[in-house]
Design a protein around this nucleic acid. Structure first.
Length: 245
DNA sequence: AATCAGACCAACCGCTATGCC
DNA sequence: TGGCATAGCGGTTGGTCTGAT
């Protein structure tokens, strides 16, 4: 995918880059967030050396660069869960993604629109639970394990065997993940993609992983969130400004 | 080998929600 | 309370990939 690389922002004299992120841009964003945390998406790109909008940076981070993101190979269990949650929640992709911690709302949305939706539009109605058969249990906040977050208690018929067979998931290509890194389909598992990114930027894997392990990452985000609107008093901002001098 | 069409998915856009002053 | 700034969400776009012809 090659979108027009540059477009002038009508409200700014500076050129804002659009389209596919390069490996260099990814490295800059990762390195910057690692060093300063997420303090303000809007003001972050410039000191990070990125000609991107904050919005673009945020999207790239949330959908692609942040730790504990798993791309491709959506399992049957995940698919069933997506179907059930969509039945419950509708197009609330972010809410659905909460129950699949390693998946992004964008990926779930794409998966639904490109694959699962067809089953319905083709008249192959999925045998999914009806609302009256579903008992929803409170969502536990503790999802420290890498298992799915607590699922709704489903008291409903299982999928019919023939329907299940129609829903077999083809192996998803890894080209999307590898666009910026020149990795092609058929290469080894991408499960270590995050570590490979760390190595790209010359970071020690363990330290980066530890720094942004699931719980730690949440803590970091919470910490940063407290200072998100604090402007010049933000410690990360002040630290950054000092280093830039 | 070339062409075409459909599938896939990263990234953009517009809108809404939220928080701060 | 209203205005502004920022974050987040969902819909859409369009480039790339892949299989069929």
């Amino acid at each position: 995918m090659v979108r027009h690389p540059f477009r002038h922002n009508k409200n700014s004299d500076t050129a804002v880059k659009k389209g596919t992120w390069s490996a260099e841009e990814d490295q800059k964003l990762i390195a910057y967030i690692r060093r300063y945390g997420i303090w303000n998406w809007t003001h972050m790109p410039k000191p990070a050396g990125l000609a991107r909008t904050g919005k673009s940076c945020r999207l790239r981070w949330m959908n692609y660069l942040r730790p504990n993101i798993r791309h491709g190979n959506i399992t049957k269990e995940e698919e069933d869960l997506i179907i059930e949650l969509h039945r419950l929640l509708g197009n609330k992709w972010a809410a659905i993604a909460v129950r699949l911690p390693e998946r992004t709302d964008n990926e779930i949305k794409n998966y639904w629109n490109t694959r699962l939706k067809k089953h319905i539009s083709n008249g192959k109605k999925l045998q999914i639970p009806t609302a009256c058969h579903i008992k929803v249990t409170p969502n536990h906040s503790d999802n420290s394990s890498h298992q799915y977050a607590s699922l709704p208690t489903i008291d409903a018929p299982k999928l019919e065997p023939d329907i299940v067979s129609q829903n077999q998931i083809p192996t998803m290509g890894a080209n999307s993940l590898c666009t910026s890194y020149g990795v092609h389909r058929g290469d080894k598992s991408l499960e270590n993609s995050w570590y490979s990114r760390c190595s790209v930027i010359g970071e020690e894997e363990s330290s980066w992983e530890q720094f942004l392990a699931p719980r730690d990452f949440e803590i970091v985000e919470n910490f940063c969130g407290k200072y998100m609107h604090s402007g010049a008093t933000d410690p990360a901002f002040l630290c950054m400004q000092q280093e830039l001098l």
